[in-house]
Design a protein around this nucleic acid. Structure first.
Lengths: 227, 227
DNA sequence: CGCGGCTTTGATGTTCATCAAGTAAAGTGG
DNA sequence: CCACTTTACTTGATGAACATCAAAGCCGCG
């Protein structure tokens, strides 16, 4: 093996199975990785895009800052998600910021190396195209859901996301604050809290501070679907 | 010249400048175009993706249908926009529908021909990647705006879109109904009408049925920015 | 200890949806 | 062409959904 990152899913799918030996070596040289503590901002809106990044471990939030200084969360990223999304190949500067929600390991490549790979290896390009499309599709879908659902549906969607996509367990420590749920859903903090309290008093969830236990998953889904 | 479509911007950018003679011929054979009357549904949610489409002339709406049968408009497409977006390269079936808002000319390619071009021509692949990224970015940005703005900001964004991106003129016939504005913004029809009435009585616009005249563009922008 | 940020609840007000009713406009069949 | 139906648009009255303001408890941290 050439690189140190052997268990990486991204490496297997994007690199090992598509590149020949020379390109694999190029990939290894262009790559670096970094362990980043929780609460660190790794990308600032307006930063120049110099590298292509993905998350190997941890959890991040992507957000943008409005003119009045308030922050709106665009999406949450989990392991094997691209950090660099939805404008990485079309603009020179990031139009969003990224902050870690827990300790995270971020891998990155020189942008020029990736672009060279894309130009020289069509199958690699196709794979990147597929993946960025899938990511954009997912983010857009959840964004569209937030436009059309009620406050109950919005908060339910957040809980179901962490349940199904991140922790895959009925009980987990919510890695974001009530304020961040508000920034993601477009609701006020108090409304988020009230909805969570309603879910609790209706027996859908149990709440111990940050710790959430999902009791009635079906009802949460029904609320998400129908409102 | 090989193909008939000589004035096409897409052809120039994506094909003429990137492909050699053999590939250009392949492109011509894989392409067909169609003039479609207003109000025609050209893609139905769930249809298999067989071709890559873009809009040469006209106006379209992209929308999805919720479980309760209501429709939510995702975005509007104008000339030189890709019709096939945000899941075209990552899924087998469309997750949205497309209907023409006025008479439109749609060009399409066999999906397999485009995929072959992507695999065999990295520069072409890079261009496609850039463009789909830019499109996703645009749609996501407007979607995020709809989450965080008030009803005034939402309706203002629709008016400004048609003013700046489609008609580039202070006076135009709104090509969509109040109902469609509601389906796009997530507001009720009555609320949309009331906001338009308010804009009118405040002297920001003039309204004669479908015809809209933008009087005070700055105020509309200020409303969009600050609420 | 005290300070600031996060959380929670209650009281109140604003924003928006719903219901109802009526007018205008546009297609449909005789 | 006109009666007829349907669809789009508009306004008012009312109520529900949600935000804001205020106050208080909690918790981590210097």
């Amino acid at each position: 093996m050439i690189c140190s990152c052997n268990e990486c899913h991204i490496k297997k799918i994007f690199f090992e199975s598509l590149l020949d030996k020379d390109d694999l070596e190029k990939y290894c040289n262009a790559k670096s990785e970094q362990l980043i503590p929780a609460g660190t901002t790794i990308i600032n809106e307006g930063d120049e895009i110099k590298s292509f990044k993905y998350l190997y471990k941890g959890l991040i939030k992507l957000y943008r800052t409005n003119k009045d200084g308030t922050q709106q969360i665009i999406s949450f990223g989990k392991p094997m998600d691209f950090v660099s999304i939805h404008n990485i190949f079309s603009q020179k500067k990031y139009n969003y910021s990224v902050t870690t929600l827990e300790e995270s390991k971020v891998c990155r490549f020189d942008m020029s190396a990736i672009e060279e790979l894309i130009r020289s290896n069509g199958v690699f390009a196709q794979k990147i195209l597929e993946t960025t499309n899938a990511t954009s599709n997912k983010i857009l879908t959840s964004s569209l859901n937030l436009i059309s659902k009620s406050m109950y549906g919005k908060v339910a969607s957040v809980l179901l996301f962490f349940l199904d996509d991140v922790f895959m367990s009925n009980e987990f420590d919510l890695p974001i604050s009530r304020k961040e749920i508000a920034q993601y859903t477009g609701l006020s903090i108090e409304t988020v809290i009230r909805v969570i309290s309603t879910f609790r008093s209706d027996g859908l969830i149990k709440v111990y501070g940050k710790r959430i236990e999902i009791i009635d998953r079906e009802s949460l889904e029904a609320i998400f679907e129908h409102s």
